[in-house]
Simulated assay, not measured.
Amino acid sequence: MISQSLNNLVTDVPGIRVGNVQNLDQRTGVTALLFDRPAIASGSFLGGAPALRENALLEPEMLVGGIDAIVLSGGSTYGLDATAGVQAWLREQAADLPTPDNQVRVPIVVQASLFDLVNGGNKDWGRYSPYAELGYQAAQGARKGQFALGTTGAGTGATTTLLRGGLGSASTITPSGHTVAALMVVNAVGTATVGNGPHFWSAPFERDNEFGGLGFPSRLAENDLALRMKPNYVAGTTIGVIATDAILTKAEAKRFAILAQDGIARGVFPAHLPQDGDAVFGISTGHAPAPASVEIWTEILHAATQVTARAIARGVYEASPLPGEPFLPTWKERFGDVKQGNVDHD
């Protein structure tokens, strides 16, 4: 039986720190995940319009064995500047980044960004984007333990078709004792909720009423399965990290990320569209033994799909209003008075 872990956050995996910083006027932000020691990493990038940095080095055949940080941001390709800020902060911590010759220190940082450029925020930031500075601040503020969800960090300006998106996280402990956790930023072209109602596509995986406890509709109407997507083919994406304390190879980390992409498809409908940039980084911090059998490895993969879907729903559920024009309502503004139970809707 899978059990819940400490804070239901990605920081439940030992060796991970998270920092969030945002600009509410610009309706954007940055999330930085820093590792106590280089983490084995790979990735899966199934969206048709990804905004990525240094993703090629994550392929199993590439030289780099471990990475120092992952950055998630708003800003589309402008947001990729955030890596420079995180890398600058890490370089200042030179003693923590040894190299064989103890002279040249190159922090390895990978990134995915989401498109939040038409969400009502002020994007007139001048010649250079603000993301390098936001990245530096996010790295500087990275901590273990608790952190906020919803309208924070890279989730600040996130939206879905009908509701505000946001940053979500979830974790679990597998029957064999490995911790598996996800951090996802939901800015999907599609929806995280069923039809026009309050139920989440992730409902079958919910634990302890973490996103309202409404369950799944008792039936799906034809309208619930209709295509809903952002108007004018506006780009969007769901990006994030799936992490475990189990020792993995780079090839296994890639498979881990692929199973998390299944979680995106469970939590967002539709997913992996041409306008989406759906991207997941698979991470092993190596604080627990490697899977001792195929069965234990499969447990970890099975958990990856579920915690990813849960993190997606939590990101939307925990979203809060922003100052100025509302642009889109939050889930709690639209459905916060819906009682627990199985609620049918049109």
Rank of each mutant, 00 (worst) to 15 (best):
V110I: 13
Q103N: 07
I67N: 12
L90V: 09
T99R: 05
H178V: 07
G145D: 01
K144M: 04
Y128P: 02
V71E: 00
G166Y: 09
L114S: 00
S169W: 08
G65T: 14
E59D: 12
V86W: 01
K123L: 05
E92G: 10
H178A: 15
L167W: 09
E59F: 08
L149G: 00
L163I: 10
T172E: 01
E61D: 15
T152K: 00
E92S: 00
G150M: 03
G121R: 13
I173T: 15
G155T: 02
A182I: 13
V110H: 10
H178W: 15
D68A: 12
D81Y: 01
K144F: 05
F147V: 04
Q93P: 00
D101H: 04
S169Q: 13
G121T: 11
L183R: 04
E61T: 11
Q111M: 14
L162S: 10
S176T: 14
P107A: 03
T172I: 14
V104L: 12
T159P: 04
W125K: 02
G120D: 05
V64L: 15
A69L: 12
L57D: 06
T161D: 12
L80A: 07
P107C: 06
L57N: 13
I173R: 15
R127N: 08
V109C: 08
L58Y: 06
E59R: 09
P130V: 02
R164N: 12
A95Q: 06
T77D: 08
L162C: 08
K123T: 06
G79Y: 09
V86R: 01
T151S: 15
G157E: 11
V86Q: 05
A181H: 04
T179S: 11
T151I: 04
A84W: 05
L72I: 11
T77M: 07
R143K: 10
A82C: 00
N102G: 13
D124E: 05
V106Y: 03
Y136D: 01
E92A: 03
Y128F: 13
T77C: 06
S129V: 08
A138G: 02
G150C: 07
A138M: 01
T174D: 13
Q137V: 00
S129P: 06
